[in-house]
Write a protein that binds this DNA or RNA. Structure first.
Lengths: 210, 210
DNA sequence: CCGTGCGGACGGGCGCGTCCGTTCTCTGAT
DNA sequence: ATCAGAGAACGGACGCGCCCGTCCGCACGG
């Protein structure tokens, strides 16, 4: 299944298909997409696509997984040598690690606006049916985020309060900024928008906080 | 006569169809929805649906418009006699008006989780093609929000800074909280989640803001 | 000569939108 | 008040196009 890397030639074809699929799914939406179009653009027959991915749904899920994998890679790269976000936190403090995560995500989706579309599509199309992908993905990132917040609160960097609330707020703000920012057309300013929003969340809107 | 119930006026029929359509679209998604199902559940023929709404797309847009109208009504009701949010702002301050708006939206979608699905669907399905609905709707609410923020900044309630950034952050946080909150299943705690997030945005995450 | 990977032609199902016979409603005349 | 008739509203059967997934013949390597 996912052990595709073993066969170089087959994996090349698969990878090629996934890249094209991401393009088409993002542009057309899952339902609107004709698998034939993906096959054509990838320069293979439709049979090949189905042999590799079983059916349209699995193809889409593989595509989404591919996109999320790319995002994860990108964020990790941004940690500049630190093995984990935790390590970065200890070195630079809570504010900077949150800034870094947010900026990394924004950068990624600014460079690959289509992948954001895939993310949203998946949310819409497969929200029921024990979603093995988005929810799973979210749980992973959330677990990491919670731990990060907990450490940061204990260290006194962050205001005391519920860990989950802080994670929720940060995650929700990030998600909202990315999605809305891409809608507003200024996909070129996604990074800027996210950075400003995160800054406001860190420092607060009120002139005199309670 | 009981016949008046069986054969209500045209506008009644339309409203009935819209309510059912909201249910079905929200549950199935736009593409997955068979118009026949809407007609059946509304107790009318498919021809009637098409006569009233033209085609499936227009039916969906009318449905979305209906949902947004309901939200607007609900928010207005929450202003407790104040004619506008501006008036409420002057009486209660910036923090409270933002809290009120956020809570009102959360309440509404907690009561009508399906309508949130409609909102998301519309975003996905009609993001191109000079969307006359969501973008228009957004521009309206954004204009109001910008004005609110501007007033609040001038009055000293809010930290100085770009008006648009503050609006973005608030709007994005609200949107993200609503969507993610509904995904996480706890649709019963939507209000709570949004309130906590807004509180954090108002006061800031950092223990010692710059 | 066999086996494996390939691709495109095709079947079948599904669902949008239409068409036309039926039913309801409203008006005006008796 | 009753009814006739016209016109509007209705509804569901059906045509048609689109697209998923399969199937079978082919090409190439061992």
């Amino acid at each position: 299944m996912s052990d595709t890397i073993l066969k170089p030639k087959a994996s090349e074809t698969q990878r090629e298909i996934l890249i094209v699929a991401a393009d088409v799914f993002a542009a057309e939406g899952f339902r609107n997409t004709d698998v034939q179009v993906i096959a054509d653009r990838a320069g293979v027959g439709k049979g090949t696509v189905y042999r590799h991915f079983g059916n349209k749904e699995q193809l889409f899920l593989a595509t989404a997984q591919y996109c999320m994998g790319r995002l994860e890679e990108h964020v990790t790269e941004q940690l500049e040598g630190y093995p984990t976000a935790e390590a970065y936190l200890e070195a630079h403090g809570a504010a900077d690690v949150l800034r870094l995560i947010a900026r990394a995500c924004a950068q990624f989706y600014q460079q690959n606006p289509l992948y954001l579309e895939i993310l949203i599509q998946e949310r819409v199309e497969f929200r029921e049916a024990n979603d093995p992908l988005q929810v799973l993905m979210r749980k992973n990132t959330r677990a990491g985020l919670d731990k990060l917040m907990e450490t940061a609160i204990k260290s006194g960097d962050l205001r005391k309060g519920k860990v989950k609330s802080a994670s929720d707020a940060f995650g929700d703000l990030l998600y909202g900024s990315l999605v809305q920012g891409s809608v507003d057309g200024d996909s070129q300013r996604l990074v800027q928008r996210v950075e400003q929003s995160v800054e406001l969340l860190l420092n607060g809107l009120l002139a005199s906080p309670s």
